[in-house]
Design a binder for these strands. Structure first.
Length: 801
DNA sequence: AGCACGCCGACT
DNA sequence: GTCGGCGTGCTC
């Protein structure tokens, strides 16, 4: 029997199956979708079995060396999905497979020197470095500067170098002790032990009352106040046996979730959920666009759909933009479905993610709530896939495989015969256009639950404030409102919409901003390390005290702006208690959640922050939302900037008055006439949609056109330019006259890690030959040759960089 | 991606 | 003459 294996080498030339003989001992054990270790050239690497064959066209087959799984980690659906994904996003098959699994399962490799001769034959220096088995890892050898000697020993045949796949079991294990003898004998033992062995008796008695006469060592020590040495003695004497049990890391340990039950739906909600439930019943893969204003109860629709799905013994995937930001969402899901929920998001450690994944894989849970990659959860009977806040850009992965979770969800729904729900108060233009065309089915929730009014939104023209001599960041209106909330003991959220998220250093005399020497980006100031860092290549530098350009001492730190706002706040309203949320205050794990819950408990009057506070915040006492500068995002060179501005303003406005108290919103801006700001006032999505669609049509942008972005980079500018020109003219020549080819132009970030970057943008409506052409371009230019350029292609890009 | 193989310049 | 630089091609 012969297995076809996709090997763990993400490169053009290895992006195909390699055949291996299946040794007798693995026959009947190896299945497709399992990870294996195979010899590949001189090394050993990991691979995925994708197929079996009777024979191979290759005649010098090697054997599969090792099997890493008992149960396939990729089922047949995910295997075929990986094929689809690699074709769709033009990525390597192995990358498509890797993205479906938790990072912990990605193989790590190790090179180890093994001694082949008796110790006397080796030099003393080498000998002292070897471990008990006569081995030394390549890494240690490098660290000790012994590579040269070892290489000599290898050529002399005294040692050899072996390649290993690190099979790190990421299982968290705990030490368990069990009574070694029967209960009867153990009880006798308690009687017969000497008086001095008081602690040992304690342990025996404790285990006698424990279920199955076993306990974790940790618990035992805690309960009986004995030390390790006691247990060690008892093990030695044979009173106890020890073993290890695998446990799950529980990211929500020490937290309990109040059980909740379904709410009575409003008429609107019932009308919206009905077609969804019907689709679930009929195994119909309709995509629904649930357009519901903020506070209209979309979540309850999700929850009740999932309930239905679970009642049919099927499973559900629920995607949220970034779950660590919405602990309230986790709470609602855990509250409703309890132990049946796995949670997957970027805030978890590698091990925690692995554990959550295994719960799904072993069918211990039926619901997963998670960020983008949770769309690949290995469920086998999906009943629904839900994408909340579907317009969020975080559903698009920005490195290979450059997929959009929405597309993957729709593709999986097809394979499982189940509906997809895309939910948002401000749908992306693409989705809404599809709903208008009838590709998606539109469901609308126009009213808030309990019929609360939408918050009152006031737009403040900051130019007028300035004209009237108010130079502060706060308009008189906002300040007055703020004061009012303080008096009434209600809470305020202040939102600073700032371009970017990081802080930098600028000279106030000459405008110098510290740039990374290898990348065309400014370096970021890191407060805790007191260093400048480049976010693209990791370059570090000292914080300058004088300007390197003009020697001025007026070189200043520009924070996220939140500190400045905070300073001003303490001057204007000194009695207010402020919680600031920005990169500086939320770097530590869980700090987000802590700050939010502190605010929720009323420990502060004002929550001040950037983008990160826009979502999921739902506290009854928030009655005022202030947006300090609505237009900073509007002037970014991005055709989606108006859409993003409108979405953001609508989202933040939705934070106010979600419960019985009415909410007000104050938006400060320098361009009140812009339609994305003007329409955020009434939160009129349809009007905004129509206007923005007109703009997109004129500009030939999505959803009227599809896009593909080709990024070409090389250390030599001339090389990049010439190749870019070649590609561009090839595109112009091969594509239809309908297609628009922009560029080549230098990328917005013109250089990263000393590589110059150019790009071509293709806008097209229908282009049958595009995929093959792009593949051909990748094949031609992405060769293994030394001097070749690097090419990335992003189909339907979100960020134009 | 690694790694070996092989072809050219600068040294004992 | 050989050591070692990097460009080229292969890995079942």
């Amino acid at each position: 029997m012969i297995a076809s294996v996709i090997v763990d080498v993400p490169a053009k030339q290895t992006d195909r199956p390699f055949d291996y003989k299946v040794p007798l001992r693995f026959q009947g054990i190896i299945k497709t979708g399992m990870r294996v270790v195979v010899p590949f050239g001189p090394r050993k690497i990991q691979g995925f079995v994708v197929d079996f064959q009777q024979e191979s066209s290759f005649d010098k087959l090697k054997e599969i060396e090792e099997v890493l799984d008992i149960v396939p980690v990729l089922n047949s659906e995910l295997l075929s999905l990986s094929q689809w994904l690699s074709e769709e996003t033009l990525c390597f098959r192995i990358s498509a497979m890797q993205v479906m699994l938790p990072a912990a399962m990605k193989a790590k490799y190790e090179k180890i020197f093994h001694s082949l001769v008796s110790p006397e034959e080796l030099p003393q220096t080498v000998l002292s470095s070897l471990n008990r088995e006569g081995c030394l890892s390549w890494q240690d050898a490098v660290g000790k500067g012994m590579l040269k000697i070892l290489q000599q020993l290898v050529t002399d045949g005294k040692m050899d170098l072996r390649y290993q796949v690190k099979n790190k079991t990421n299982l968290k294990k705990i030490r368990i002790i069990t009574l070694a003898k029967s209960e009867e004998e153990s009880r006798n033992l308690v009687e017969t032990l000497s008086l001095a062995a008081e602690k040992q008796k304690k342990v025996l008695n404790y285990l006698l009352i424990s279920p199955e006469n076993k306990r974790s060592v940790q618990e035992t020590k805690l309960e009986t106040t004995v030390s390790d040495s006691t247990i060690k003695t008892m093990l030695k004497k044979g009173y106890l046996t020890e073993s290890y049990e695998e446990i799950y890391r529980d990211p929500f340990e020490h937290r309990s979730f109040a059980r909740s039950v379904s709410f009575q739906l409003t008429d609107q909600q019932r009308a919206a959920i009905e077609p969804v439930l019907k689709a679930v019943d009929q195994y119909d893969h309709t995509t629904f666009l649930l357009h519901g204003v903020t506070g209209s109860g979309k979540t309850e629709i999700y929850l009740q759909t999932i309930e239905k799905v679970l009642s049919q013994n099927r499973q559900a995937i629920m995607l949220v933009p970034e779950i660590s930001l919405t602990p309230q969402m986790v709470e609602r899901f855990k509250g409703r479905f309890g132990e049946q929920v796995a949670v997957m998001h970027s805030g978890l450690s590698v091990g925690e993610k692995y554990d959550e994944w295994r719960k799904i894989h072993r069918k211990e849970v039926n619901v997963v709530v998670g960020a983008r990659s949770a769309v690949f959860a290995p469920f086998e009977k999906l009943g629904v896939l839900i994408i909340d806040e579907e317009h969020e850009s975080s559903y698009k992965q920005e490195d290979a495989p450059r997929y959009h979770a929405r597309d993957v969800a729709i593709e999986r729904a097809k394979r499982h015969g189940c509906p997809v729900i895309l939910g948002s108060a401000t749908p992306s233009l693409e989705s809404f256009a599809r709903a208008q065309k009838g590709n998606y089915q539109l469901l609308t929730l126009s009213k808030r639950m309990n019929n609360q009014p939408m918050p009152q939104v006031t737009i403040i023209d900051m130019r007028e404030e300035l004209r009237d001599g108010n130079r502060s960041m706060f308009s008189r209106e906002l300040l007055a409102q703020l004061q009012e909330r303080l008096d009434k003991n209600e809470q305020t959220v202040l939102f600073l919409n700032r371009r970017g998220h990081s802080s930098f250093i600028m000279c106030r005399d000459c405008g110098y901003v510290m740039q990374c020497p290898h990348c065309e980006v400014s370096m970021t100031y890191h407060r805790n390390a007191e260093k400048m860092k480049c976010h693209y290549c990791g370059e570090e530098a000292q914080v300058p005290s004088t300007c390197p350009e003009c020697q001025s001492e007026h070189i200043r730190y520009f924070g996220t702006g939140t500190q400045k706002v905070e300073e001003e706040l303490t001057k204007l309203v000194p009695q207010a208690r402020v919680i600031r949320m920005d990169v500086d205050t939320t770097t530590r794990k869980g700090s987000h959640e802590k700050l939010l819950s502190a605010f929720g408990e009323g420990q502060a009057d004002i929550l001040l922050g950037t983008q990160m506070i826009a979502k999921g915040l739902d506290f009854p006492n928030i009655t005022l939302v202030g947006v300090l500068s609505a237009d900073t995002m509007l002037h970014l060179p991005d055709f989606r900037s108006a859409e993003k501005t409108f979405q953001l303003l609508t989202q933040v406005s939705g934070r106010a008055g979600r419960h019985d108290k009415e909410g007000e919103v104050v938006i400060q801006t320098y361009t009140p006439e812009h339609f994305s700001i003007d329409l955020a006032k009434t939160q009129n999505f349809e009007l905004f949609y129509n206007q923005e669609m007109a703009m997109r049509k004129i500009g030939q942008y999505p959803p009227f056109y599809f896009m593909a972005l080709i990024n070409i980079s090389h250390e030599n500018v001339l090389k990049v330019v010439s190749v870019s020109e070649e590609i561009s003219s090839l595109l112009k020549q091969k594509l239809s006259s309908q297609a628009v080819i922009l560029g080549p132009v230098a990328s917005p970030i013109a250089r990263i890690q000393n590589r110059y970057r150019y790009q071509c943008l293709i806008k097209y409506k229908k282009e049958e030959g595009l995929k093959p052409l792009l593949k051909a371009i990748l094949n031609d230019y992405q060769s293994a040759k030394k001097d070749s350029v690097m090419i990335h292609i992003d189909v339907q890009p979100y960020i134009m960089m």
